[in-house]
Nucleic acid binder design. Structure first.
Lengths: 256, 256
DNA sequence: AGAGTGTACCGTACATTGTACGGCTCAGGT
DNA sequence: ACCTGAGCCGTACAATGTACGGTACACTCT
């Protein structure tokens, strides 16, 4: 590719795009929204790498370069896709309404974020740091902070706690997505793959001595029929993190 | 690109490469090790996307296609780079020797992993699930499990606890790396960038109402001079996670 | 010494990418 | 009826991973 990275070169332009309505169609019916939706559909099934401007254009029965009338480039398009993907995260229900107080709310947040990341695994490949200012993302941040307000935490602590939970969900979901993608690409399940490399591995590892790795790795493999079980990692980590946060919150309300 | 993804098509071949010694040079002095080291050096400074087979070959004063005599493709090369990057993680010291028991050991593990990820940010872009069987990675797993053995945890719990810590470190380091890369690509610090989009943002957000997001976001921004502070996120999250693990471990030894 | 052989090396070619550039075409205003 | 501007798009280019086929060198065997 000859052009730039995936970073959007003009942040102000991106912002305007993000917050605009984009409902007026051109003379062939092309809309920013339609482009974004087509791109998301393709990315869902093919991945972000496989997503090309040509593919999006073909799906919309439009010339490739017509997309550039509505969207400055691929970077901005992925920004738009990202915000859009979080569009109806909390459309039906809110964390703050869940039973179980802040703990139940954070579990709800984790679950919903997990669902989005599972439905749109390409999100992991979007550079997100400065994109976090689209309307849906901002709204998401607002809603997710609510159950943490009024617990005695400082503002910075509220953000840290939320970030911790979201980072955990993202990391775990990413590992799961990678696992799935590898299985799909290779056409082999973890078990089949393991069986295929097993002889080579034993050959190669004779003379080495990794007793703990062997014991624990085997235990994990037998327990989950795989080297990792994302669902288990999610719940184990979440429980541990919430236990830790409970201590922080308790210490704060004790002072109060 | 015309070829396949970044996934290695032949796992057994990859394994043999990973565990081989690769010290015998060809008639132009080319070695697998030299190729991997050149690739790592380039990736460190330019990133994994910018790393191309041509660049590696140029750096080694060799024709591009000569690399393919030693390495099947780019996918396998990144696998090798990955394992190599973790080569001397614990060369001088081991987690189990640290003061502070399992807690001190996990803090040491987190710190060392953080250092590697900071030195080699491209690691975040390597698909890792099935690569985790190189000699250095296996050794790393063995060493990192040691401080968790004998605490009353099951084998699966030991793996889960370690995975939790490593996932946290990785997620946080990734966010930090993304932040740095965005700054470098755009040539703008977070503050400059914020100043640049600020007017557009206020224009666009008039009429919306996000009191919490505004309050907390502002507090975070003022506290860290940025939207996120990776070092703080690392230590906050680690403390919380270790507090949570302490409860699990205490409950196990109470039963014992 | 000479011949033969396998392997290291590499030049060229191709499909695929994002997008710059410049031309075409049509809707709406005058 | 004509002009203008914007939507649309065909072509071109630089860069990518690597398949393919050729070249040249270091051996072994006679």
């Amino acid at each position: 590719m000859a052009g730039r990275k995936a970073a959007a070169p003009d942040p102000a332009r991106s912002l305007a795009l993000l917050w605009g309505s984009h409902t007026k169609p051109g003379r062939s019916g092309l809309t920013v929204r339609a482009i974004v939706e087509a791109a998301i559909a393709l990315a869902d099934s093919e991945g972000l790498d496989a997503l090309s401007m040509r593919m999006v254009a073909d799906r919309l029965k439009v010339g490739t370069m017509s997309l550039y009338t509505h969207v400055p480039g691929k970077g901005e398009l992925t920004d738009l896709m990202f915000d859009q993907a979080y569009g109806d995260l909390y459309a039906d229900d809110e964390p703050v309404n869940q039973p179980g107080g802040w703990r139940g709310a954070l579990e709800f947040i984790a679950r919903r974020n997990w669902d989005v990341l599972t439905a749109h695994p390409w999100i992991h490949d979007v550079p997100t740091v400065r994109t976090a200012l689209g309307p849906n993302i901002t709204r998401k941040y607002e809603i997710e902070l609510r159950p943490l307000d009024g617990l005695g935490l400082t503002d910075v602590e509220m953000d840290s706690a939320l970030t911790l939970v979201l980072t955990h969900v993202q990391g775990t979901a990413r590992a799961g997505a990678e696992q799935l993608r590898t299985q799909r690409d290779s056409g082999l399940t973890d078990q089949e793959w393991w069986r295929q490399i097993s002889p080579t591995l034993t050959t190669v590892m004779t003379g080495t001595n990794f007793p703990l790795a062997g014991r624990v790795g085997t235990a994990v493999g037998e327990h989950f029929q795989s080297a990792l079980d994302p669902a288990h990692a999610l719940s184990f980590g979440l429980t541990t993190i919430l236990d830790g946060l409970a201590q922080l919150i308790a210490s704060r309300s004790a002072v109060e």
